[in-house]
Design a protein around this nucleic acid. Sequence first.
DNA 1: AGTCTTGTTGAGAATTATTCTTAAGAAGTA
DNA 2: TACTTCTTAAGAATAATTCTCAACAAGACT
Lengths: 155, 155
Amino acid sequence: MKNRDKALARLKETLETNGLRMTQQRIEVYLAVAASGCHPCVSEVHEMVRENLPTVSLDTVYRTLWKLSELGLVAPVSSSGDRVRFDAYMRRHHHFVCARCGAVYDFDSPSLDEIRIPEEAWSLGCVWNSHMELRGICLGCCNEGGGTEEGHAEG
Amino acid sequence: MKNRDKALARLKETLETNGLRMTQQRIEVYLAVAASGCHPCVSEVHEMVRENLPTVSLDTVYRTLWKLSELGLVAPVSSSGDRVRFDAYMRRHHHFVCARCGAVYDFDSPSLDEIRIPEEAWSLGCVWNSHMELRGICLGCCNEGGGTEEGHAEG
DNA sequence: AGTCTTGTTGAGAATTATTCTTAAGAAGTA
DNA sequence: TACTTCTTAAGAATAATTCTCAACAAGACT
């Protein structure tokens, strides 16, 4: 099953289960984020979606992304100082956030993937998924102008 | 040593190390976030700081928070659909984010605290700290109106 | 296939959040 | 004390996001 088909099936199932409608706009927005190799911001998603749906409004993209987020189909990505960006988490991965430029890097880690959700968390609500968030200075910024000296111990 | 003194010492050291000045505004902003039991947004920090520095401008709070973030003294917190919020990570903890209301809950987990930063991450840059991010629906939202049915597997 | 219900959208407008500009203030050094 | 220059505040501007409401359309039912 191709990723696109998998994504569509997931979208359909989730919308149905929640009594929501499957619209072309929702399809295109979701596919845009799911197919994206990075973390697109709203206007980037808007541009992508407009290729197939030229009349789609920016507000629709906002509304759709937040609705997909509520449904767990996409999630806003931690970044530093940048407008909100989204990730469809089509595959398990973790994030490294640069404190300086705000870039968010994906990385894989089989060892981190093995970690169970601890009991303590379940008292807070229904947990859908987890990933590890790292924070520091990316290589680009390190090489650029002397990395910022970290003033914060293990967080 | 009290938390306040520890925070001040950390601020001072980090600013010095980076050739930056220690200003009253920076002190108050940092102490406000460090003393906060939750994750204050910019305007909340502004209100707190104004108690001791009534003329501080909102722009200064924004600038100071982003500068502190670059320095690793505070970090923006993942949230869903809310304006940006900050955490000083004075103590190691992890986050549970509600996909519905956007609330971010802290939780402690000794087992998660033990996790080492994997090798894969170090190729991306200099890692300062890590925490686990969980995503789901909080108890408040579950009890409120039938939790959103999750359409997304383990992320 | 047609009708109906109502969720969803788009265009235009409005609001909110954030950043810019620039002169003055102030932290820190000599 | 004088000097350098980083940092700030006030006012303005910009960018990001959300609202309003009539029209459209997804999906259920007949």
